[in-house]
Design a protein around this nucleic acid. Structure first.
Lengths: 345, 345
DNA sequence: GGAGCAATGCTCTAATTGAGCATTAGCCGT
DNA sequence: ACGGCTAATGCTCAATTAGAGCATTGCTCC
């Protein structure tokens, strides 16, 4: 296993920036999509800002990373969230680092370039602990086309798909490097047109396609030339500052995928819950498509929960057993999770 | 869905660094784990450096991100790799952004703090295209305990597990915040001790545990106080500079997981291949545990490949049909991949 | 020409998954 | 106190999928 020139003294390798022109430097932004489920609604912790150019004023909690102060990125993130909202969340995971020029509403080149690191945090709202700043809002407010709880959302057929079809019919502005995927095919993959399936995990892909097609307010902010074709578009969700809606889309994709192979759903639950409450929470995240009896069989046989011995009576029907998360499952199985399939109801 | 104080004029939100002490700034390092499979061996593109403090001299291709020059992180990454190795890879995905102080071999506080973004790139080595700088090395050189191709690796029982057990028997140095997981339990989850299963995807978890236990050279570099108990440890793999071995561990975890639900394995294959060659490549990445007939049934029935019509004769046995990747499968199924289970042979 | 070695085709069984039926047990209004 | 309502819960059944193994075929090499 030895290839190429295994040189004793390798050729000098450059590491200094390829051009040296006193760059204005890079700043790292830490951004948290903090998710909870409250009364069967998936909600997100929002901080209000002053309006920016397109009128967007909603933002995730965020702030710059300053390494002297915080030993790790995550510690910095928690500090900013506490500072801005008063919240201490438990579970957190890194999502993605975005560095595209122009997606951070910086059309001019003054000021440092901002690279955004997005995080997903999960928490539970009890009725007691919401003494904090910031507002909980449904995540579907920002992504109405992802809301399939009352069937196929009307905005898809009324607004999005007609416009996307028109966009797909046009050739790309410039040739795409590499192996190009036809616009029609991307529509099919992500929006399920033409016999394709709707995959609830592809939230980010759909958002990026809408951005590219110029249907998202943030795209018009970042590429003002798009505003020329500025016919009113209708309600395509509330815009957010910077690339925060992209981070939220990443968060939604991640949690919808992860629920299926890691027991993260329990981060959103109170300590004790009924199986139906658990199912409602899963459905709030994924969309409603679970067979109740099978869900219960799945969760119980996977050893994810154990009965507390208590019952909950005010269910509206027969009293339900209360369960708690069985943490030991983490030790027993490599990938425990609510293995629901994207199938129907 | 309205909580807390939905203030008309929100309280001022701080965004400036919490302390203002003229930080030395942050630099972003772009690092690429470039993986191929050559003669059934998973290999990695390595660049040699001058030795650092612990004698580590192997590194991934890397360089700083300079936003003025490169519009996106990925463009910057490709430029550095081309510059240092002459390679243009196709597929690439971002892995993770590491920002811990001290893991980048910066015990002193001079110089900028480096935040490393790791990437996984996949490519194929034909016999023609290896006219480049850099060396391909087996990834098992850096992770001998991950090499189960000839059965359970001896280094596990001979060296790692005895030392890890001793470590697990000690209490943690300082209490861990949050919900602590017992060291024994972590060993069980990640190393399959005491009846637990070995999960080939948990490469990063194992590396981090070994690092924490001080068994990895890089840990001794970063925390010199560990070197006190500096009994010779034996071959725990070649060290790398900075946090590059951590990035490689992340890459191995990612590709071992991703192969199962996305057709990324084909990025490692030549255009035409036999099903057994495909199987060998999957096994190079995952470890050998596939039932041949079932593998073939799986791959064919999933529509991942189509016959080219050609045959390959010099197989050592009966001639084999040649196949190619069916790209259309991407349009047909939401998550196509080689859905192999972690089961036995 | 026969042995050796993979490739390939099939079968069988055990698990898992998807759906639906039936029964049970509190709550509520009368 | 009672019947109706709503869920919770227990089971059954068929369809699919996954895990293993047997049998045959068709080149290459001695």
């Amino acid at each position: 296993m030895k290839h190429a020139l295994d040189i004793a003294k390798p050729p000098a390798v450059r590491r200094d920036p390829l051009t040296r022109n006193e760059s204005p430097g890079v700043e790292i932004g830490l951004n948290a999509a903090i998710v909870a489920v409250h009364k069967d609604e998936p909600v997100l912790l929002i901080v209000r800002e002053d309006q920016d150019a397109i009128g967007a004023s909603d933002s995730l909690p965020y702030g710059p990373f300053s390494p002297l102060e915080h030993r790790t990125l995550e510690i910095g993130l928690r500090a900013w969230v506490r500072e801005q909202t008063g919240i201490d969340f438990g579970y957190v995971e890194q999502l993605y680092t975005f560095g595209d020029r122009g997606r951070h509403a910086q059309v001019d080149d003054r000021g440092p370039h901002v690279v955004s690191i997005g995080y997903l945090a999960l928490t539970h709202i009890d009725d007691g602990n919401d003494h904090h700043r910031g507002t909980w809002r449904s995540w579907y407010q920002y992504f109405p086309w992802e809301d399939w709880r009352r069937g196929r959302p009307a905005v898809l057929d009324d607004i999005l798909l007609p416009r996307l079809s028109a966009w797909a019919a046009q050739p790309p502005l410039r040739p795409v490097p590499g192996r190009p995927v036809r616009r029609e095919d991307r529509l099919r993959m992500y929006f399920g047109t033409d016999g394709g399936a709707w995959d609830e995990e592809k939230v980010l892909d759909r958002y990026e396609l809408l951005y590219e097609a110029g249907l998202i307010d943030e795209a018009r902010r970042d590429r003002p030339e798009l505003s020329v074709m500025d016919t009113p578009i209708g309600d395509l969700g509330t815009a957010m500052i910077y690339d925060h809606r992209r981070i939220l889309a990443t968060a939604m994709s991640r949690i919808r995928a992860k629920i299926k192979y890691r027991p993260v759903i329990f981060e959103l639950m109170p300590p004790d819950f009924t199986l139906f409450e658990l199912q409602k929470t899963v459905e709030a995240i994924l969309g409603p498509h679970l067979h109740k009896q099978n869900f219960r069989r799945l969760v119980e046989s996977a050893g994810l929960v154990e009965p507390t011995g208590e019952m909950k009576t005010r269910t509206g029907g027969r009293p339900a057993k209360l369960f708690r998360f069985r943490r030991e499952v983490l030790l027993e199985r490599p990938a425990p999770g609510v293995r629901v399939k994207p199938g129907r109801a």
